[in-house]
């Protein structure tokens, strides 16, 4: 076990997978050379594996996606980095029309086993185009997987699994967790499944499901609420599309009181989909209406009013307490 940040864990995952599979490549804006990405996620990879496998792409996201898909067609487990999740939008056509459709539209003859990595999330004074969570744009595209690690352990294991997967995977990394999250993780090789949510903490009064920084808020609040004798089941949704219905339903039924948290605007969000699953299949186990705590109905997010937009740790704790008292 060695202590690493979330960002280091991602970097380690790529180093290990590059060494394991000579077909793996990574590219994107400012990904190559000594810079290794604007956040440093790919630092050291070019020096270690050469600039044919680790390189800067021109500044065009559709091109980044299309190049990756073409490599995928030839069996390369390519990693395409979009510098910010906000910048993924010019590549939507390539991701939806090509990557997500390739296997199905050829009945398995052609596939696109690639990873689209991208940092998402607010709280970094990034304004409208460096703060968004764009995962909802892609949730609902069969053929595509959307995953996001919210722990250091998962940062490494989930990225390794995504690189090895034969499906196209959209890999969302919370940029605020890059350096703020540190933990001891195993030095040996391990992977985390791409279709399983994870119960991070057992509890029997309320169930909270979230990902990213909202999950950190939930874990902290769960600890604080123990003093008030409130026992919280905390679920890291982790695999955002398709969702892990089994884990979600088991955790929802366990306490009957469910709080879903997203830093994104609530409408058409990932947690909406979670709420729908619970509404459809867990009615008789509910002890309270399913609660959704999420960003307001406003574009995310104002540079100056970022704190007002984002769901705060205090709001999370208050919502959890209120649900416990329901």
């Amino acid at each position: 076990m060695t202590e690493h940040t979330y960002l280091e864990a991602l970097n380690l995952a790529m180093h290990e997978e590059f060494a394991r599979d000579p077909g793996v490549v990574v590219f994107g804006e400012d990904v190559g050379g000594d810079k290794g990405g604007v956040f440093g996620a790919t630092k050291g990879l070019a020096a270690a594996f050469g600039d044919q496998r680790v390189f800067n792409s021109p500044l065009g996201e559709s091109g980044i996606a299309g190049l990756a898909i073409g490599l995928g067609l030839m069996g390369h487990h390519a990693i395409a980095e979009f510098q910010f999740a906000d910048y993924i939008l010019p590549a939507v056509n390539q991701i939806m029309s090509e990557a997500a459709r390739m296997r199905y539209r050829t009945a398995g003859d052609w596939t696109a086993p690639i990873v689209f990595r991208t940092p998402y999330g607010g709280g970094v004074h990034g304004g409208f185009y460096h703060s968004q969570t764009t995962d909802k744009v892609f949730a609902g595209q069969p053929g595509l997987r959307i995953v996001t690690p919210s722990t250091v352990y998962d940062a490494k294991g989930l990225l390794k699994a995504a690189i090895r997967s034969e499906d196209p995977v959209l890999f969302y990394e919370h940029k605020r967790l890059y350096r703020s999250l540190k933990a001891d993780i195993p030095d040996e090789d391990y992977v985390v499944p791409l279709d399983k949510a994870q119960v991070l903490q057992q509890g029997d009064d309320i169930t909270v499901m979230a990902y990213g920084t909202m999950l950190q808020h939930a874990l902290n609040a769960a600890k604080a609420l123990q003093a008030e004798d409130i026992s919280t089941e905390v679920v890291d949704l982790r695999t955002l599309y398709p969702l892990d219905q089994e884990t979600i339903l088991a955790a929802a039924k366990k306490t009957g009181k469910v709080l879903l948290i997203s830093e994104d605007t609530k409408e058409a969000s990932i947690i909406n989909n979670v709420a729908a699953i619970i509404a459809e299949q867990a009615l008789f186990d509910l002890d309270a209406p399913v609660q959704q705590l999420a960003g307001p109905l406003a574009p995310g997010m104002s540079y100056a009013l970022e704190d007002e937009f984002l769901v705060s740790a205090e709001q999370v704790q208050a919502a959890m307490r209120e649900l416990a008292q329901f």
Binding site: Q245, L249, Q281, L283, F284, L286
Partner: peptide
């Protein structure tokens, strides 16, 4: 894979 709603075996279950 969608789990079917369980038949109300044993104890009846009442909707809200």
């Amino acid at each position: 894979e969608k789990p079917k709603p369980e038949p109300a075996a044993g104890q009846p279950r009442f909707s809200p």
